[in-house]
Structures are given as C-alpha cells and as structure tokens.
Design a protein around this nucleic acid. Structure first.
Length: 436
RNA sequence: GCCUCCUUAGCUCAGUCGGUUAGAGCACCUGACUGUUAAUCAGGGUGUCCCAGGUUCGAGUCCUGGAGGAGGCGCCA
C-alpha cells in the first residue's frame, strides 16, 4: 500500500515531460546560492540535476526561510512547478512551492574546488557523488553492459570462474594468499584456465569478473584488483582472435558514443578520436615493431619485451588501437602456442590503445599439444602438479583455441580520455590503499 | 624492487638569506543583494608547520633518521 501522504517523486531526467506541472523531486543538495529575495538550490537525484528557485514574495515565510537551512548533500523533497528556462543548467527548473528536509547533512568535506588525490581517495565513499566520478562510473557500467550484450548476441556462454583457487595462474609471485581451512588459497589472477575448460562444453565462452594481482606497481595503469573480460573460442586461431578483439573493442566505443554522450562531455572527451575506431585495426608483428623502434632511435633489440615508452612510440604513428603480434616466447606466458613459421615466437597479440593508454588486451592462441605444453611448463620452471587438471584438457579431446583478456578500467580510461584508471572502479585497490 | 619529488589551518597552497606575532583563497558563521551558474561585496578564527633527534643565541626554513603520499620505471590488463 503506497503512502498517499508522500507525492510520487518525479525523476529529474523526465522533467521535460512535465512542463507546467507541480511535481516533487527527491534527492541531495549540491549547492545553494541566496540573493536576499531569490535563492537557487541545485538538487541531484541520481538521474539528473535541477535547480529550484525560491522567490521570497511568492512563498510562506517558513518555506522561504527553509532555503537557508539546506546544507550541501542534505536529503530533500523539493516541490514546485516545472518550467523551461534557458538560464538554468539543463534547460528546465523548478519554481519552488514547498521543501522538506528528509535528512540534514553535516559540514560536507568535499568542496566544489580542487582537492588532492589522497584526500579524495580517503573520501571515495563521498567522492562518488561528484559529477565527473558519476560520469566515469556511468561509462564503466555501460561498457560492462555492452560487454555482456556483445557476447550474448554472438552466442557466447558466460562462465563465472572462481575467485578463490588452489591452483596458480600465470605467475606465482604475484598472487594474493589467504587461509582456506588450513591450506593456502589464492585470489584468482585470471579466469583463463577455467574458461578453456568450458570450451568443449559450450564452444564460445567468456568470463567477466574481478582479478587480483599482488604486483607492487605504482602507475596510472595498475590496480591490485581490477575487472577483466576473458573470452575463449574453440577452433579459433590467432587471426580469428584478433578479428574478435577489434570487433569487440569497436562495439564498446560505439556504445559509449551512442549512450554516454553526456558523460563524455562532462569528462571533456574529444569524441572525434573515438568516431574513427572501427575495424580493421593496424597489425604489426613484433619483429616489425622492433624495426620501427630502432628506426626511431630506440636501443631495443630483438628478444626484449616492449616497455611502456616503446608502446607509446609505436602507437603515436596511428590513430587507432594497434595490434602487435607474435612476440618472442621468452617474453610471454607458457600456455601460448609456438608459431610454426618462426619457433622463436608464439602466436599471440597485444592490443595497444592510442594516445598513450598502453596495453588494453593481451591474447593468444593456446598450446593444445600435451607434449609441448609440458615442455613449456618445465622450461619456465613451473610445478607441473599445479596444472594437473589443465593438462587433462589436452588429454581428453584437445583442440585449437584462442582467447584474450581485456582490462575494463584501462579500456574505460582510454574511452573517456582520462589520466588514471583509479577513477573507473568504484573502490580502487592500490598497492597502499585498502579502504574505504 | 629502483629513481625523482612532496608533507604548513577542515581543504588547496604561499612562506624570501635561519630572525622574534605564521599567511592567502576556499569552506563555515553574520549582514547586504530578485536570475545565480565554483555568484559577488563587508565582517568574523582556525595551527602538534608529518614524527624523532641534531646544528644554532634563534629552526616551518639547515643536517640525520623514520613515517605517510605523489609521479615514473620494471611487471602486466
């Protein structure tokens, strides 16, 4: 039974359909500006922002006086008549007739001014309310939804892989450990091995969940907890894999342009650079990348992995994301398939985002030969017993297959054109930040 | 793990050559103002100068050690 004493709130995004009507919006006070006989109160309700106009001569003293008690982030129900007003942010405003303070707010720590990073991260639970943070997280949510839509439309089955695991992923040194009833458990650093196991059941699968890396990285591109999308496709080779990647990344960009134009504007993104993002993306082999770098004066030699400055040099020649494929096997993980045309390299690719955002995807064709896979595990000095069930996948009906991992926060940072990926996860976990 | 820089009011910062009483803006409170857009104008007070030692007649300032933070590298998505 609805409470009939409370008028049904109207959402701010719908105000343009209620011009001339008396409505009530519920939300939080962003700012107030008083001028003696007129006052402006800006309210956010989560769907939008609207200013309420208090006119002293048209209001009861109690309602007029109330505007002075509205503090930043107080919860209010604001009633008034909707009207079109070019001077108002958003084009519509509320001629206030009544106001109720649902809950007061104490002196609010975050002011409409510059703050330091440490202060903002200490107040992340409040920082979420500010316009640029709302915009960034809204784009993240859209990219996340677009991911599910993309793979669902292409008949992929979503496989939720475990977060707690007893087996190691790629690199034992970067695992978070925790106690699991007396034995050691690890927080998953990839879902890949598990999605590979689901391929013979569903053919095309993907996982999308949190990933944990105990890397002591202090850069704008790293989090210790981040979200990764990992598709895996049976009977796909490395070329099929790259085609899927460019199609997927282009789909994400298109969705952001289509559904998040307001947010991209709040974030100051130049969308012309995004409009260009359509398949095919440029592809250069690792060997060609080394030649290009040497031509630009780099000291890099064949066999070394590309560093962050090298990636910037490569991407500055293109205005699209760039594939770099077939790296030397020493630079890559044990499970990648050897390149039959050049056994020094493996069938893999990175996708480097333009404008200096670096690697947003790492992918490869997987080693499907049991003997070669065991040799590679031994060569890397990894404990074979940790991969027992993974090797079973090559014992019981092995098959060529490929997949990749895309980091959501890095992708959103690139699409929004912002500097640091910590703004694109609600609660960033950094090397020295576990709260709030 | 390595390199560089930073730490002064609730917040963002200034503080000269080491000098006696520690500075501004914002936030907050009071007042003025009928169209603001981070409103404007006038008034109001706020300090463990990150911590511990040291040098000095005297340290926010110089030295040593420690803590916290930022940026970059490596590693990766």
């Amino acid at each position: 039974m609805p409470d009939l004493r409370m008028p049904t709130p109207t959402e701010i995004r719908d105000l343009n359909q209620h011009v001339g009507e008396d409505v009530t919006v519920t939300g939080w006070v962003e700012t107030t500006r008083g001028h003696g006989k007129v006052a402006f109160v800006v309210v956010r309700d989560g769907t939008g922002v609207v200013q309420g106009v208090f006119l002293k001569k048209e209001l009861d003293a109690a309602v007029w006086d109330a505007h002075g008690t509205l503090t930043q982030e107080a919860t209010v129900a604001l009633s008034g008549v909707v009207r079109e007003e070019p001077r108002a942010p958003g084009g519509y405003e509320l001629g206030v007739t009544g106001v109720e303070v649902i809950a007061p707010s104490e002196e609010y720590p975050i002011q409409p001014k510059e703050h330091g990073v440490e202060f903002l991260l200490d107040h992340r639970h409040l920082w979420l309310r500010s316009s640029q943070q709302r915009a960034g997280l809204k784009v993240r949510a859209e990219i996340s939804q677009a991911t599910h839509d993309f793979f669902y439309e292409r008949d992929f089955t979503r496989i939720d892989t475990p977060i707690l695991t007893g087996s190691i992923g790629e690199h034992a040194g970067t695992l978070f450990e925790t106690d699991y009833f007396g034995e050691t458990a690890y927080l998953a650093q990839t879902g890949q091995l598990y999605v590979e196991s689901a391929c013979p059941a569903f053919r095309r699968v993907y996982c999308f969940g949190p990933t944990f890396r105990a890397e002591k990285s202090k850069t704008r591109r790293h989090l210790t907890e981040f979200w990764m999308v990992e598709p895996e496709v049976a009977f796909a080779d490395s070329d099929d894999n790259m085609r899927l990647q460019e199609e997927y990344v282009s789909y994400l960009v298109e969705r952001a342009l289509e559904r998040c134009s307001d947010e991209l504007e709040v974030l100051g993104r130049d969308t012309a650079a995004l409009e260009r993002v359509k398949p095919p993306f440029p592809r250069i082999s690792y060997t060609e990348a080394i030649e290009r770098l040497q031509a630009k004066g780099s000291e890099i030699e064949w066999g070394q992995d590309l560093g962050a400055p090298d990636e910037v040099l490569i991407t500055e020649d293109f205005d699209l994301p760039v594939f770099v494929y077939n790296y030397p096997k020493e630079a890559k993980a044990f499970y990648m398939k050897e390149n039959p045309e050049d056994p020094r390299t493996v069938l893999c690719n990175d996708l480097l985002a333009p404008e200096g955002y670096g690697e947003i995807i790492g992918g490869s064709q997987r080693e499907d030969d049991l003997v070669r896979l065991r040799e590679r595990i031994a060569e890397e000095g990894l404990p074979e017993e940790a991969y027992g069930w993974y090797l079973d996948l090559r014992r019981y009906g092995s098959f060529p297959h490929s997949g990749f991992g895309l980091g959501i926060e890095r992708t959103v940072a690139w699409i929004t054109g912002r500097h640091h990926i910590r703004e694109f996860i609600p609660y960033p976990r950094l090397m020295n930040r576990l709260t709030p």
